[in-house]
């Protein structure tokens, strides 16, 4: 897994993430309110133009996400075949414009900015007593930290199967992987508490 950070400093990169997300939401409402192929074609062209002007890597990223494009093409193709070509075209324009813009937002926003935005959005929840906004960043960091660890464990279990000449079956693979990973939870939790990363939850002893 590679966590490539989007690089660049175009005007889209400088916009606050919350504004980009608001535009994405507005766009999704707009494309579903419109139902004429012409209007949607104009919107799709605008989105494509914006991406070409300000953020070409997003277009490359979008073309690389072929499983998504394939499902869009499949539903649009089926609709064109089962209903009529115009409905299929409307569907194709709608979903591709939306997914291209979503990819642009993802490409022009760093993971750090996203985490800040989510934390800021979670502050009101914290005030009414649900959860802790700072925990979101900590949890995301923990996952990124432990994915390679779990991958290593997965490989170790596969090797152990090979060494014993056992067939790899879902249960014999999943159980050791899950138990082995979760057993570390106490140590990790103690390490977090020992470093006072969540001061409000420090253990009394």
């Amino acid at each position: 897994m590679n966590f490539s950070q989007p690089a660049g400093s175009g005007p889209l990169h400088r916009l606050p993430p919350a504004a980009k997300l608001a535009v994405l939401f507005a766009l999704s409402v707009l494309v579903f309110a419109l139902s004429s192929a012409f209007a949607l074609g104009v919107i799709a062209a605008l989105v494509l133009g914006t991406t070409l002007l300000f953020c070409r890597p997003a277009l490359r990223q979008w073309l690389a996400s072929w499983p998504l494009l394939l499902t869009i093409a499949l539903v649009a193709g089926w609709t064109a075949f089962a209903k009529d070509p115009e409905t299929g075209l409307v569907l194709l324009l709608r979903l591709s414009a939306l997914s291209l813009f979503a990819t642009t937002v993802t490409t022009t926003t760093t993971i750090g900015q996203f985490i800040e935005t989510i934390t800021a959005l979670a502050r009101p929840l914290e005030r009414i007593g649900i959860g802790n906004a700072a925990d979101i960043g900590l949890a995301i960091g923990l996952v990124i930290r432990f994915v390679p660890e779990v991958q290593t464990r997965y490989r170790a279990v596969i090797e152990a199967h090979r060494a014993r000449g056992l067939k790899i079956r879902p249960a014999t693979l999943l159980v050791p992987m899950i138990i082995g990973t979760l057993q570390g939870a106490d140590d990790i939790a103690n390490a977090i508490d020992a470093r006072c990363i969540r001061p409000e939850h420090a253990k009394p002893n």
Binding site: G131, L138, A139, V150
Partner: peptide
């Protein structure tokens, strides 16, 4: 939420991620 619960949740998310990679 206890730190241990938070860690269990994050570890299981890591497991789900790895299950998607294999």
């Amino acid at each position: 939420m206890q730190t241990r619960s938070l860690v269990l949740i994050a570890l299981f998310t890591a497991i789900i991620v790895v299950l998607g990679l294999i």
